[in-house]
Amino acid sequence: MSRARALQYYLLTRILLAPLMLWTIVSIIFLLLRATPGDPADAILGNRAPEAAKQALREQLGLSDPLPIQYITYLLQLLRLDLGTSITSRGLPVWDVIWDHFPATIELTFYGMLIAVVLGVSIGMFAASRPNTVFDAGGRLFGIITYSLPLFWMGMVFQLIFAVQLKWFPLGTRFPISTTPPPQITGLYTLDSLLTGHWSALFTAFHHLALPCLSLGLLLSGIFERIVRVNLKQTLRADYVEAARARGIPEGQILRNHALKNALIPVITVLGLTFAALLGGAVLTEVTFSWPGLGNRLYEAISLRDYPTVQGIMVFFGVIVVIASIAIDAVNAYIDPRIRY
């Protein structure tokens, strides 16, 4: 079987298995929500509400039905692409809740990943090109520290230093209440500001993005630094690199044109999966900085036991991760001819 046919067969298999993966994700989320302590009626109406009102709410939400009936009803809704209605958003469909908050999450994740990749790859390259030196040890220490620091702690430290004491940046939120945001085209404030020519709004958007993106990017950079440093050090010891040195090619050219391309292949895999996971996993950053993204909305929905919103957001993120994993396999096979499926 040729390489192209093998890749097509593999991708087709992954696509056919995607519904099974999504069904597993949906089932786990459904069961975990109902296995955790707490009653949505108590969370929404309060403990002092009359029992009759609580029972009426449970019947309205379908929570008084047996668990298998609830499960089958939810699966039938998903087959119609119906994520349900949010309990805590004044009856808005969950799809509307997702589209209202998702642009803020995309913006935070994109710039946070940009900082992480630039910083992590740069430090990893610098450390790997100087093996067994203080720079190599420093790169290793940087990767360990940034990988192990708690994200919420780093965010609060940045807030304390740069927002409270130095007053260089705002404590949180996406845009000041007293300022009108740019006209909405994509929902991304930085992009909308560029498209409409609102330069003051662009500066304000970046000003509010700085601290959450820096805290998120700095801690994620340790992952990329470690991957680049380890893979680049191995690549620099490969036979084709030694042959390039024997031909008298400058070390910088060997690093850029020969070693770095192969060392970055694992980075592409981690980059895609990390970006997809961060779209739903930047909850701590969004909560710490009061960022009105989908992660913060998910945290609120979990706190209030809003089953439809939690299930809808998690299913939405599950679809993104499944699609991203399939796309990354295809990109890796295209970049690296050695990959076989």
Score class of each variant (00 low, 15 high):
154 M>F: 09
24 T>E: 02
140 R>Y: 06
266 P>V: 05
66 P>K: 07
330 A>K: 03
290 S>N: 14
64 S>M: 06
284 L>I: 05
304 L>K: 14
72 I>V: 15
81 L>V: 01
82 D>C: 04
28 I>R: 05
203 F>P: 00
12 L>F: 15
301 A>L: 06
56 A>Q: 15
255 L>P: 02
303 S>Y: 07
261 K>P: 01
106 I>H: 02
80 R>H: 15
159 Q>A: 08
92 L>W: 05
275 F>N: 06
68 P>L: 10
59 E>W: 00
19 P>W: 10
195 L>N: 08
56 A>H: 04
5 R>F: 12
193 S>I: 06
97 V>W: 08
6 A>M: 13
291 W>H: 09
229 R>G: 08
318 G>M: 11
198 H>Y: 09
49 A>R: 12
108 L>E: 09
11 L>D: 04
308 P>V: 03
314 M>C: 02
256 R>D: 00
57 L>N: 08
90 R>Y: 10
63 L>W: 14
311 Q>S: 10
85 T>S: 05
149 L>Q: 05
259 A>I: 13
23 W>R: 04
325 S>D: 12
24 T>A: 15
204 T>Q: 06
242 E>F: 04
3 R>N: 06
310 V>E: 02
293 G>H: 04
227 I>A: 10
229 R>Q: 13
198 H>S: 12
157 V>H: 03
6 A>N: 03
125 M>T: 11
165 Q>C: 00
78 L>Q: 14
126 F>S: 07
36 T>C: 03
244 A>I: 10
214 L>Q: 05
86 S>V: 04
102 F>L: 14
8 Q>S: 14
95 W>A: 12
164 V>K: 14
70 Q>C: 08
303 S>T: 05
332 N>K: 15
45 L>N: 11
33 L>G: 08
37 P>R: 15
245 R>Y: 10
296 N>H: 13
132 N>I: 01
323 I>R: 01
283 V>S: 09
291 W>P: 06
252 G>F: 03
28 I>W: 02
210 A>C: 04
61 L>A: 08
195 L>M: 14
335 I>G: 02
254 I>M: 09
20 L>Q: 09
248 G>Q: 12
239 D>G: 03
310 V>F: 02
223 I>R: 15
170 P>M: 09
234 Q>E: 15
65 D>C: 00
257 N>Q: 14
109 T>A: 15
176 P>V: 11
295 G>Q: 03
